[in-house]
């Protein structure tokens, strides 16, 4: 137990030796140094600004990937279509043990892959007679019929590795209006109008890019660009930046958990499949731990036990013979 006199020195105003100190001068010099360092770094290195991807560039560079992704969307087999809350109720989403936290808060940002990504965009423009007829057929059909066409086409396209030419011509009747609709959507993307329509969804003002991001994320084009830029989560992606620039290095601990078992064990492992939730909780606890260090036994005593403070106050200890 410490005595009250020992308590005093830490909490009372310092009454020992002092030295002259000009806080305004120190602040001014520090600001000048930082400003000059920033200007120098900006002049020599600039800053990253890799051009954003668009649906137009996707449809131009990787049309078959776009086409197959659109087939997944209309069949409801894309990642976003089966995501769960907050976008839809197609699945329970990730869990944290027995808890499905996202599901508790429901579908707060509804996204309907078929309507939002395919039907609404096609309906906003004047289509070719073939696409118009296909859209009309789709709209007057019941959902069972729609799902049947879309699933069959999605399966056939997957078996053909996305190559429409490999699908037997005789099977086309099974797919109803779906191939014509997807072709219409591809043409729309290639013209550039899909980018605007996905964002606006019939509105004038719009700030929410959720639908575009989900749709683009369902394909390989976006993913491949990210891999080429070393931004994938399993390669410390969250703390990386495009080009040769430093990224969010301060997220190293967050990225670290994704690199080690059990969180990198793949989607078949419960911790791998639900790594996002577990890592968010771990980081929340560690952040709280940082703030509450003065109260954590063991940790709060480390500075005394590991004498780095002897280096920091070397001069003081020497002068005071401590």
């Amino acid at each position: 137990m410490s005595s009250p006199r020992i308590e005093d020195l830490d909490s009372q105003p310092w009454a020992g030796r002092t030295r002259r100190y000009d806080i305004i001068k120190e602040g001014t010099i520090a600001l000048l140094v930082v400003t000059l360092l920033t200007i120098a770094a900006s002049m020599f290195f600039g800053s990253p600004d890799d051009k954003q991807l668009t649906f137009k560039s996707w449809a131009a560079v990787a049309p078959s990937d776009f086409y197959q992704t659109a087939a997944h969307e209309i069949a409801g087999t894309s990642e976003s279509a089966g995501y769960g809350a907050p976008y839809n109720s197609a699945s329970d989403g990730v869990n944290l043990g027995p808890l499905h936290l996202a599901k508790i808060f429901g579908v707060s940002r509804p996204v309907n892959s078929v309507n939002d990504f395919v039907i609404v965009p096609l309906s906003t423009q004047v289509n070719t007679p073939e696409v118009s007829a296909a859209l009309k057929t789709w709209n007057v059909s019941d959902s069972k019929m729609q799902q049947g066409w879309a699933s069959k086409y999605d399966d056939a396209l997957t078996k053909a590795n996305g190559d429409q030419a490999k699908i037997p011509a005789g099977a086309l009747a099974d797919f109803g209006p779906v191939p014509a609709m997807i072709s219409g959507l591809l043409t729309m993307a290639q013209s550039g109008s899909l980018d605007a329509v996905l964002l606006s969804q019939g509105n004038y003002f719009q700030f929410d890019n959720t639908k575009q991001t989900l749709f683009m994320g369902d394909g390989n084009y976006f993913n491949d660009q990210s891999t080429a830029s070393h931004l994938q989560g399993d390669t410390w992606g969250m703390m990386n930046e495009t080009g040769r620039y430093p990224g969010q290095a301060w997220l190293w601990l967050y990225s670290f958990w994704y690199q080690i078992p059990p969180f990198n064990n793949g989607d078949q492992h419960p911790f791998g499949a639900n790594a996002d939730a577990y890592i968010m909780v771990i980081m929340g606890l560690l952040s709280a731990g940082l703030v509450f260090i003065p109260f954590i036994p063991g940790i709060k005593n480390l500075p005394r036990r590991i004498p780095i403070h002897r280096l920091i106050w070397k001069q003081y200890y020497k002068q005071e013979n401590l």
Binding site: P86, G93, L96, A102, G106, S108, R109, D276, A277, M280
Partner: peptide, 9 residues
């Protein structure tokens, strides 16, 4: 990450 703990709502 944010959706997994419900914050994405």
């Amino acid at each position: 990450g944010f959706n997994s703990v419900g914050v994405g709502a």
